[in-house]
Design a protein around this nucleic acid. Sequence first.
DNA 1: TAGTGGTCTAGACCACACT
DNA 2: GTGTGGTCTAGACCACTAT
Lengths: 245, 245
Amino acid sequence: MSITLLKGDERLPLYQRLADLLRNEIKSGARKPGDRLPSENIIAEDYGLAPGTARKALAELVNDGILERVQGRGTFVRRPSFDQSLFRFFRFRSKGSGQEVPKSRIRSRSVKPFPDHVADKLAQPRKSDGIQMSRLRIIDGAPVVLEEIWLPLEPFRAFLEIKTDDLGDLLYPVYDACCEQVVARAEEILTAEAAGKDAARLLNIAVGEPIMVVDRLARGFDGCPLEWRRSRGPAKLFHYQIEIR
Amino acid sequence: MSITLLKGDERLPLYQRLADLLRNEIKSGARKPGDRLPSENIIAEDYGLAPGTARKALAELVNDGILERVQGRGTFVRRPSFDQSLFRFFRFRSKGSGQEVPKSRIRSRSVKPFPDHVADKLAQPRKSDGIQMSRLRIIDGAPVVLEEIWLPLEPFRAFLEIKTDDLGDLLYPVYDACCEQVVARAEEILTAEAAGKDAARLLNIAVGEPIMVVDRLARGFDGCPLEWRRSRGPAKLFHYQIEIR
DNA sequence: TAGTGGTCTAGACCACACT
DNA sequence: GTGTGGTCTAGACCACTAT
């Protein structure tokens, strides 16, 4: 057997070391979403492993949701999907079907100083300027979610040049197209609070009614924070279900 | 190669059919939590498979959280743990550490007719009698969660004989000990509402303050519903976090 | 037809737990 | 020491995709 070409802790199994290596290549951006990886035989050959060992490493990454394998086509770096976002538990379905993206109405977009808690999340200096946006998401003409979005000025300066009319209902593709920033993952936190005056008016509910609050911090491949947003919707529209085994 | 001894859809791979078979044995109660399975070699032999194939089936069940494997000891049916319950996102930690089970104060226990929505969940006839219990969970002397619990009269009649003082802070072990009912899994649903008069008084918050509501339907191995409970706590103590990849 | 991943086999060797 | 699961190898054959 040839010498192992994998670095890392020698006590770890080979398939682990290979998985870590590939994970890092993806994190660092050396491999981007949609890229095809070499076949398992090629990978195995390259690192002096048996195909089964390479296969096990790939299986682990598939399990982590980082890779996707399609029989006959190859192994691909998975594009992040927000299918599991807490957001989808707001029960907006346009009458009948489900699944659609709610329409957005942009209420404002401007450059102003970050609130301290946002600056901290985005790893920006306190009191420095950022881009703030406020949107209302609407289904069948009824407001369902109010969003406050913050971006660092760099690298999102080009985002300010885009006409509001050209912003669709999804922002992440715009970040990619105009600023070459790709959201790779995110953390979400769910809390609840009583509706304040402004939120109540915009969401068309009574002051003091409970609302669900979802804070999301979106990150790039390198883990660098890209966007912070807070989404608020009436609690009566929210319904989150999990399984315990 | 010997004939396959596995039933099921012949188009499915062998490891899938074996996994399905074992899953059913566990669901039906033929194998109970804590039971040790035969070694992978024995299983492989029994069904005329290669060890690697049996291994893959077992790996799948480990991934599903149904089995647990310990090197040198064997493969075991996993006991359900409520580590992932939404419940743990109520931020009660006794000063300092975390992790403890909050103390319970039983407020009442009696036999009365199910509310319709509870009867439906527990698959009992509407208007029939059930066991109702109300508890307050307490940390450091402060009330944190109010619970309403419903059980079907059968098979829980023996539960009524137990002295309140003998009920600890955890109920599921009691169900097992006195009624031979084991909770195998559960579904939880999270919503929020404004505190009513009673809840506010018991939880020591203002009327109208938002509270988080977790409904849980616990089931036995056969999927039969065993217990329904609704837990309510102040939203300000609740903080739920997820990762999106 | 060539190349990919998916299934399955049949072993060798190691680390760990019991007793 | 014996038996368990964990790692790793080296292949065969199949199903699917692209050309």
